[in-house]
């Protein structure tokens, strides 16, 4: 891929989705966009760029979607789910003993492995949760991955990455070549399309927010703005879970990290200045 093409795509992605690619992500673009180009009957990234310059809005959406769709797997990185079971839930079971309800948001749920991992974790502790109401709201930018998440159908490869075999046996059924997560687990997750660049205050208040491996794509101002708006919709004693390579440190003081719990943060009580999405918020995919 030549440099002008790369710069064009970088700018396009930044304008349309907030995705902030560093100068050396040519391989990522090629691996994600070449299949898309071929599908559109184009021979190369250059041809694709030319077509984008001609202003094909469908193609622009497809490009943004292909670049922002993350790979994911069940219990990805494991540690956050240990935190969920060992720190977050025990604490919330005490703190919400009167209300007996907990709301969880998966802010970039992709094809559903994260919300379903949480749903299975909750199933595993169902004894302690008898009489409780636990909501999992799963959102993503891409309608395509949301549809896949709703269906809960996974390939043999997908169910073997991170999912303990006992949980496969317990919570999945075979559907031909695929495995489908049981309807009672699917029923624990509500799906909604959402662009984090837009206002999300209408989702209500959450006790737990999983926002992993999505902010890394945004530029610094956008990150700070999203953290500010996240803090506003969280309970003061709630928990924020970020990806292994992400942090709030050096960006914002609206969240503070928990000692010895990598990736786990709590609202600090410091008021955020972020009131609304950044002015001129970029166009949502699909709009």
């Amino acid at each position: 891929m030549n440099q002008p093409d790369y710069e064009f795509l970088r700018k396009l992605l930044r304008d349309k989705s907030g995705l902030d690619l560093s100068a050396d992500k040519q391989y990522l673009i090629e691996s994600r966009l070449l299949p898309l180009a071929r599908k559109a009957g184009l021979a190369s990234i250059s041809d694709l760029v030319q077509k984008l310059k001609d202003g094909s809005s469908t193609l622009i959406s497809q490009v943004v979607e292909a670049m922002t769709t993350n790979e994911t797997f069940f219990f990805r990185d494991k540690v956050p789910f240990d935190h969920f079971r060992d720190v977050i839930m025990p604490e919330l079971l005490k703190a919400r003993a009167n209300r007996k309800s907990i709301r969880i948001w998966c802010a970039a749920c992709s094809t559903g492995q994260e919300p379903y991992s949480l749903a299975m974790s909750l199933k595993e502790m169902s004894g302690a949760l008898s009489g409780w109401r636990v909501e999992i709201v799963a959102t993503d930018l891409s309608q395509e991955v949301l549809e896949k998440s709703k269906a809960g159908l996974y390939s043999q490869f997908e169910v073997q990455r991170g999912l303990p075999i006992q949980l496969l046996v317990k919570y999945f059924k075979q559907a031909g070549e695929l495995w489908q997560i049981n309807s009672d687990v699917r029923g624990m997750v509500q799906h909604r399309q959402l662009n984090l660049l837009h206002d999300f205050s209408q989702l209500g208040t959450f006790d737990v927010v999983f926002c992993r491996n999505v902010l890394i794509y945004f530029d610094q101002d956008t990150k700070i703005n999203i953290f500010g708006r996240l803090a506003k919709l969280m309970e003061p004693d709630g928990f924020l879970v970020l990806g292994a390579a992400e942090t709030v440190v050096g960006l914002t003081d609206v969240f503070k990290p928990l000692a010895d719990r990598r990736g786990l943060y709590r609202p600090s009580g410091v008021a955020s200045t972020a009131k609304a999405p950044l002015p001129g918020a970029r166009v949502a995919v699909g709009n």
Binding site: E71, K78, V79, I165, Y217, G243, A245
Partner: peptide, 18 residues
Amino acid sequence: AAKFQEVGLIQALSAESA
């Protein structure tokens, strides 16, 4: 690697970014 990690035969692979 995922399965061996699951049963404690190997340590978690280093955290990766997306």
